[in-house]
């Protein structure tokens, strides 16, 4: 009886020490989870998740009030990355979401633009240049394709265009072959 108590006490002490040491030695100097989630999100700030921007959505995911499948610009890749990060099961994207959304940028049809600055106020990343009664233009390299500038435009002069493919940003296609030979 006594030996059992002593042994168990000893074991508890040893493991306690090991655990305590491990806690100090392998301490995770991590970003708080919100930052990590925010890093995975595509930062389009589009609000399509029903939160006002990527960071509020990250906070909502961290607090458990939002699902990980509410980010249409991120598509399947972002959802899977979030599932991986949070250790939860992947959730299916809504049917209206595409798995691999096409990257787009806003383009202002300059002949129609009246220079009302409403789109400038709507842009979450200050990617539209212009002043009152002057023609506006989109800085293509900084546009996230969030489409937030489209509804405020009184003359519907903003259109979304796919990002132009060049030899520099071209991606080799996934090989099309099947694990089968001559049919």
């Amino acid at each position: 009886m006594l030996t059992a108590i002593i042994i168990l006490t000893l074991l508890a002490t040893v493991f306690g020490l090991i655990l305590g040491y491990a806690a100090i030695r392998f301490k995770v100097e991590g970003d708080p989870i919100v930052d990590q989630i925010d890093n995975v999100l595509p930062q389009t700030q589009c609000g399509q998740c029903s939160y006002p921007g990527c960071r509020p959505y990250a906070e909502a995911i961290a607090s458990g009030e939002a699902n990980i499948n509410q980010c249409p610009p991120g598509g399947e890749a972002t959802m899977l990355a979030l599932a991986d990060l949070l250790g939860v099961d992947p959730q299916p994207l809504g049917t209206e979401h595409e798995a691999e959304p096409e990257a787009t940028v806003a383009f202002i049809i300059e002949d129609t633009c009246i220079g009302c600055t409403l789109c400038i106020q709507a842009c979450p990343v200050d990617a539209i240049l212009g002043a009152a009664k002057q023609m506006h233009t989109v800085i293509e390299s900084e546009c996230t394709g969030c489409e937030l500038c489209i509804p405020p435009c009184p003359v519907d002069c903003i259109v979304m265009q796919p990002v132009k493919q060049t030899a520099q940003n071209w991606k080799w296609p996934y090989p099309i072959h099947t694990l089968e030979a001559r049919k």
Partner: peptide, 11 residues
């Protein structure tokens, strides 16, 4: 995304 985040935060 980093750039967009920075610009958003700046805004």
């Amino acid at each position: 995304a980093e750039l967009a985040k920075e610009r958003h935060q700046f805004r």
